[in-house]
Amino acid sequence: MNFYVGVTDKGWFDFLRQEPREDVNFWKPLGGGTTFGAVSKDAYFLFKLKKPFHCIAGLGRFVNQIDLPTNMAWEIFGPRNGFASYGAFVQAINKYRAGSGKAMEISPVISCLVITEPVFFKEEDWIPAPADWSNPIVTGKVYNTGSPIGSKLWVDVNATLLRYQHDLFAPTSPLTENLVLEAPGTYRQALTKVRVGQGAFQSLVLQAYDKRCAISGEKTLPVLEAAHIQPFSQAGPNSLGNGLLLRSDLHKLFDRHYLTIDAHDRVVRVSSRIREEFQNGKEYYRFDGQPLRVLPKSLADQPAKQYLQHHNGLFMP
């Protein structure tokens, strides 16, 4: 099994470990054009503190990578970026970018590595960095449990995680359910589906729909929102099959059941109530009877019939 050890600042770590968080943004200050392909989706992602600490201090599961303007990253993740305020977040990004010779920008694009279900170890549980970690490594490194060093590190992480089982914000977690120490130097892993937090859900929907509104094709990022088809409050999951990327006004109409997506043919249906209640709606009736303009490339990520049927049942033509 491959897993990744990513280098991070202690300030980011100290802020985020103050309270349980469903997901965090392990951001990189330079975004645009670089794909994080070190490990696959759902792989374990370990947090290594920079020197002088030089220790593994926690981990989570890698869910997604997406490039976003700084203001959008704050809108989605807020303090889960590792800072109490947007100003402090921007200041940290500009500090790194200045060191790389990049020009100052109002909202520079950063690379967001979305990590779900993070666990932050107490200092007494920090694990020394692998013996083969060299000074030139500035971002991170892939390890494999099939190698002696990778196996030893994973056994140490596994044993530490088991001690944290009762401290996690969820009664049970894939991070601890999946890791069962059988004997020194060995482990057994049974992969289960990773729980996706709200920030991760938004980033996944943005990426799946290529940052375009499913109904209108709108590409202006600040007005695009990840919508649940079946509301999260009504047991709708944070999964792509239960998501749509919608322009903000269309999102509001969708949530209030003034429009829906037919579960059988994925055609937009717009209610006559808009005209009756507001004596308007020309902008929206042009979408009535039209198929969705944008869909995820993967069939598995497209709107699921069961959630569309739930929404259809609440729609009043």
Rank of each mutant, 00 (worst) to 15 (best):
S248W: 07
H310F: 15
Q309G: 03
I229Y: 05
N25W: 06
D167Q: 12
H54G: 09
R17P: 11
L175F: 08
G185C: 00
W12S: 04
A226V: 01
R80D: 15
R212H: 12
V223D: 07
Q306H: 08
P79Y: 10
V7E: 01
F232M: 06
A190G: 07
P148S: 13
R212S: 13
K152L: 14
S100L: 12
L113P: 08
L179Q: 12
D249N: 12
D9W: 02
A98L: 12
Y284M: 09
P291V: 09
L308P: 00
G150C: 06
A131Y: 02
L246R: 02
V142E: 12
F201L: 04
F62P: 04
F83R: 06
G82C: 04
R247W: 04
Q279Y: 13
R97Y: 00
S111A: 12
V223N: 03
F287P: 05
R275V: 11
G146P: 00
N2W: 12
Q202L: 04
D14G: 09
F26L: 06
P136H: 04
F315E: 06
T220W: 13
P69S: 11
S147G: 12
H228A: 03
S40I: 11
Q65E: 15
L244Y: 02
F315Y: 12
K28Y: 14
E19F: 05
V24W: 06
F53N: 11
F121H: 02
G217H: 05
D9F: 04
I229H: 03
D288C: 03
L204I: 03
R195H: 10
C213P: 01
P184N: 04
L299V: 09
R247Y: 09
T8E: 06
P29R: 02
E19V: 10
L295A: 01
L181F: 08
N64T: 15
H257C: 15
G217F: 07
F201P: 00
